[in-house]
Design a protein around this nucleic acid. Structure first.
Length: 708
RNA sequence: GGCGUGGUAGCUCAGCUGGUUAGAGCGCAGCAUUCAUAAUGCUGAGGUCGAGUGUUCAAGUCACUCUCACGCUACCA
């Protein structure tokens, strides 16, 4: 679908449990915004849709921790997101939210259709239900007596004493670990989408771009890592996926369906359908028919996402859409990789991020500067890195010295020589082009060069190569500088006024072209440029086409006789102090001691004394084969030696741990892990960013001592 | 461990289906220039294209092995 009649663009729905940072922008929003603004300027019928993803368990948990309600959490972030997106200039046509009734209806309707068409595999199982907690219990939240060995604290999925694999309903005297209540058996039904049946057509669609026997898109236009990721999943074999969950915050499974009570749509049936509900909301307010955008073969659907979302958008959501039958599938999923920050991964929990709203507050009026550097370092093909000094260099050297200074030169000279009026000139006047003195050029031949260069920018945008497009755009500014440099109007004005007129007129055409072409990337700068030239602002209504048509016809973008305004600076430098302040705000991992996991329920002393903690010394250590995280340790308790498997290999090498003193839970029932029997468990403290530390006695203590 | 993507000048990155002396921007050195926010233009130095083996008349570009980074996945009672 190269020449689609209309385009629907979606950006990943941000999850409403944390503020927006630059990593989000780099992944799914900036690239989409450039693409959309450009296509509007190409006169395309295009809709740009997004919204807050507000359902799911993580939000409930956050609400409990913060002693508030899920609704308050999502309201807060929904507002923050809107401010951030607006501030940085992401031009959504509609920003919706999945807590909206329209979304609930839409996703339920979708579910109903799949249900009625028999697309689901219904699996009813009997599960334990905790009446006090009012929820179904996951296997590991149930304990009871093992039917095989009479061990009295077997988990719902496995007895650690005898190692047998269990199902919760096998347990004798089951108890809920949440409340201590005896759970009741209750039937629960979930609906699964048999993705395994979709493998064949998915493969054809992804690898060959063929859907229902027709060429749907060119697989070459998809990014390597996107196709690679999908193939990896297909090769691994797809499994049926549950489309519902026993949750308490989200979209209800339609009530008329048997067994729907307490069930919510799982994220697969919820978030991506948010794109559809957002489109409906937009269409309703703008007199459009949303079906044109989702159900017409002549529409190109594009999902802009980060790489963590590839499988979701390339396999699961398409399967859901195809199962419904009325919907089109994405033409492309231009996923970006990740952006790192100053040498480290961006992390919300570690506060290692640049928050969009903080940036807007700290550096007001510099939205385009952030956009510029983010586009320049956009992780299109591989992970990339944001550094404040890189940001400073790029702004000062490229935006100020090259672009803004070029514009300033042209405007100042025009005002100086012609009182701000675009000069009339002789078309036969020879001038120097950007190549220099080796080649004579004319005004009209240079406009054709400009046309070609603008076309190159456009081609890159169409191919989702935004950094390349930005480079090509900046090259136009460089060529403008070259034209001035080679023709030296400040010298020539003394003996060849006619030549200066041609050069200055051409330069003004360049600036007018830049005013238009920067718009998708740097909308605010584009606006300032238009004001500077006293031209109408970009309306995102076919402006690019108009410009290209004029150039192709040999017409001018800014007419002789037109009066421009006096000079003012387009961008200003960023000083070292500003950068130092921002760098200082990045404080690595000084985590407020927040209770990530609440204190568990009280136990009585008798429970505590059941656990036999002992000191021990590591005498041997080796990696467990075929497992990244596991070390097999031999521990000396003084009176005996034991083998223990521990998940610490990512933090400690075998050499480092030999000789360490540790604390061991000595009477934990043995369990086989990766084929090795582990006789106990080593105590480790875990920080909130996943780092591990031994919990051990002071150096030089004997092994086998009792700990209490 | 399995799978995927990447590892190219000091830094940030381009290099499509293998084909002459491997490219850009920044930084660095020199020259020119002053209209401009000490901006601009020109020239130059800088790379055994992660390591190794192979296929080929020819490999950064293909195959295999290894290695490192990141992601997904398994194992972390």
């Amino acid at each position: 679908m190269i020449n689609a009649k209309r385009i629907l663009v979606t950006s990943a729905l941000p999850y409403a449990n944390g503020p927006l940072h630059i990593g989000h922008l780099a992944g799914a929003y900036l690239s989409a915004d450039i693409y959309v603004r450009f296509q509007r300027m190409m006169g395309k019928d295009i809709a740009f849709i997004c919204g807050s993803d507000e359902n799911g368990a993580a939000i409930t948990i956050k609400a409990i921790k913060g002693n508030t309600t899920p609704q308050k959490i999502v309201d807060q972030y929904h507002e923050e997101f809107k401010v951030a997106f607006k501030g940085i200039g992401i031009s959504f046509d509609y920003y919706h939210r999945t807590s909206d009734p329209l979304h609930h209806e839409t996703s339920q309707e979708f579910f109903r259709k799949l249900y009625a068409d028999g697309k689901f595999e219904e699996r009813t199982t009997e599960q334990y239900y905790d009446a006090k907690a009012e929820q179904f219990l996951a296997d590991r939240y149930i304990k009871g007596t093992c039917p095989k060995c009479d061990y009295d604290s077997a988990y719902g999925d496995q007895c650690e004493n005898c190692g047998s694999t269990l199902s919760p309903t096998d347990l004798i005297n089951p108890i809920s670990t949440l409340t201590g209540e005896t759970p009741v058996r209750k039937k629960t039904t979930h609906w699964y989408l048999p993705l395994n049946e979709d493998e064949e057509w998915l493969r054809d669609w992804i690898e060959n771009g063929v859907l229902d026997g027709q060429q749907h898109h060119l697989p070459k236009s998809w990014k390597n890592h996107v196709i690679g990721q999908c193939k990896s999943w297909l090769d691994g074999g797809l499994q049926p996926r549950a489309m519902t969950r026993d949750l308490d915050w989200g979209v209800d499974v339609p009530q008329e369906i048997d067994g729907s009570e307490g069930k919510k749509l799982y994220v697969w049936m919820d978030a991506p359908i948010g794109y559809i509900s957002a489109t409906k909301a937009w269409a309703k307010e703008n007199g459009k028919d949303w079906r044109d955008y989702w159900q017409d073969e002549e529409t190109a659907l594009l999902h802009f996402i980060g790489k963590d979302n590839i499988v979701f958008h390339c396999i699961i959501f398409p399967s859901i859409l195809k199962a419904h039958g009325d919907y089109i599938l994405p033409t492309n999923v231009p996923a970006n990789q990740f952006m790192n920050l100053e040498g480290d991964k961006i992390s919300t929990s570690r506060n290692w991020a640049i928050w969009v709203n903080d940036y807007l507050k700290d550096l007001p009026g510099r939205e385009d500067e952030l956009r510029y550097f983010m586009i320049k370092t956009m992780p299109e093909q591989k992970d990339s890195e944001f550094t404040w000094s890189g940001y400073q260099d790029a702004i000062n050297n490229e935006l100020v010295n090259n672009l803004a200074n070029y514009v300033n030169r042209v405007v100042v000279l025009t005002n100086k020589y012609y009182e701000g009026v675009v000069p009339q000139f002789d078309e036969n006047q020879e001038i120097f082009g950007p190549i220099g003195e080796d080649e004579f050029a004319f005004h009209d031949s240079e406009l054709l060069r400009l046309y070609d260069d603008l076309n190159d920018v456009a081609d890159s945008i169409r191919a989702y190569e935004f950094r390349a497009a930005l480079t090509k755009l900046m090259d136009i500014s460089t060529k403008g500088n070259q034209i001035l440099q080679f023709n030296e109007p400040w010298k020539t004005i003394k003996d060849d006024e006619e030549k200066v007129k041609a050069v200055m007129n051409l330069s003004l055409q360049y600036v007018a072209a830049i005013a238009c072409a920067t718009h998708p990337f740097l909308p605010t700068a584009s606006e300032k440029l238009c004001q500077l030239l006293n031209l109408p602002l970009i309306a995102e209504d076919g402006d690019f086409v108009t410009m290209m048509d004029k150039l192709a016809m040999g017409e001018h973008l800014i007419e002789a006789g037109h009066k421009i305004n006096s000079a003012s600076h387009l961008f200003s430098r960023i000083d070292d102090e500003t950068i130092a302040t921002q760098k200082a705000k990045l404080v690595p991992a000084v985590q407020e001691v927040e209770n990530e996991s609440p204190i568990k329920e009280n136990i009585i002393f008798d429970d505590f004394v059941k656990i036999d903690f002992r000191t021990a010394k590591v005498v041997e250590a080796e990696k467990v084969p075929k497992a990244d995280k596991l070390l097999k340790l031999k521990l000396d308790l003084g009176f005996e030696q034991r083998t223990v498997v521990s998940g610490i290999a990512e933090h400690y090498s075998p050499e480092e741990v030999v000789g360490r003193e540790v604390t061991l839970v000595a009477n934990l029932a043995p369990r086989k892990i990766r084929g090795v029997e582990s006789q106990g468990m080593i105590l480790m403290a875990e920080s909130s960013n996943g780092k591990l530390s031994f919990v051990a006695p002071d150096k030089g203590w004997d092994s086998g001592m009792i700990v209490r």
